[in-house]
């Protein structure tokens, strides 16, 4: 049984195929570029091609993310919180706390052993602490996003950013540059600021190990280090965790499919 999970986010649309709810097939992503339905179609096309399947061979498809209602060919849609939690537990079964840092919002989720959401807290009204904060700071510092972690690694003393506002941080960063502070130290300060915002959300729902980080930030070693130092705990990170919500959606699609295909049989018996 092949199920698909599509996480249609504000920055990227991510998708995965999962076999029998347990085996991960290749994952793919494309920029959403303001056209969520099209981005979803593109990702699904890439996944099917990569797995050498015919489009009809995907048995069930579940969408999640802000654009989940825009994709017409879905069998199911679930909230990003439900999907991220489920995906994190799929990747790290010991997860009890999931931190999902997306482009526009950050969510702290406490989860049960089976991956059910117990409590969550998100920041959705302000870009502070979300991926966009990092993107903007990277732009002011003229450091490409993909080399942020590497550039920050050289920092001995983070130069703290007092402003939590993604826009006002620009002025502060410019002042730091003018004062001759090395870029690596400013960057590490940006990561610390991000980690502190995340920590506030995490404390709100209660932090129980293991903590698993999901979302786009997982590729950024500097941010992970800052987060571990700030919360004083190890954080589970995997390259696939960028796809956690998509994985969770595919796993939930499998569960639903199993339930609906067993139910009629049970009724007959």
């Amino acid at each position: 049984m092949i199920t698909a999970g599509l996480d249609i986010g504000s920055g990227l649309t991510k998708g995965v195929l999962v076999e029998d709810g347990v085996r991960l097939l290749p994952a793919r992503s494309v920029p959403t570029r303001g056209n969520p339905a099209e981005a979803g179609r593109q990702v699904l096309g890439l996944l099917v091609e990569e797995a050498n399947l015919l489009p009809g061979e995907v048995d069930y498809l579940c969408t999640t993310g802000f654009g989940r209602y825009t994709f017409p060919d879905r069998d199911l849609q679930v909230s990003d919180i439900t999907a991220s939690a489920r995906g994190a537990v799929f990747l790290f079964p010991g997860s009890r706390h999931v931190l999902d840092v997306g482009s526009q919002s950050t969510r702290a989720i406490s989860v049960s052993e089976t991956g059910r959401v117990l409590r969550f807290k998100m920041n959705e009204r302000c870009a502070a602490g979300a991926g966009r904060f990092l993107e903007r700071c990277a732009k002011y510092l003229q450091v490409p996003l993909e080399s942020l972690g590497e550039r920050a690694a050289a920092a001995e003393h983070p130069k703290l950013i007092s402003s939590v506002c993604a826009v006002l941080a620009e002025t502060e960063i410019i002042n730091h540059i003018a004062d001759g502070v090395p870029v690596s130290e400013i960057l590490m300060g940006v990561f610390v600021s991000l980690a502190q915002r995340a920590h506030t959300l995490m404390r709100y729902v209660g932090i129980t190990p293991e903590v698993t980080l999901v979302g786009g930030l997982v590729h950024n070693s500097g941010a992970v280090t800052a987060l571990e130092r700030t919360i004083g705990l190890r954080v589970n990170v995997s390259g696939d965790a960028h796809y956690a919500a998509a994985i969770g959606a595919a796993v939930l699609a499998h569960r639903r499919l199993v339930k609906t295909s067993i139910a009629p049989a049970a009724a007959e018996a």
């Binding site: 504000s10 303001g34 526009q104 009204r125 302000c126 870009a127 966009r132 904060f133 903007r136 506002c165 993604a166 826009v167």
Partner: peptide
């Protein structure tokens, strides 16, 4: 949107 960053995206999407 209250947040400037989100308002910027909102403006772009109104435009599109």
């Amino acid at each position: 949107s209250t947040c400037t960053v989100f308002a910027e995206s909102e403006v772009t999407s109104h435009l599109s």
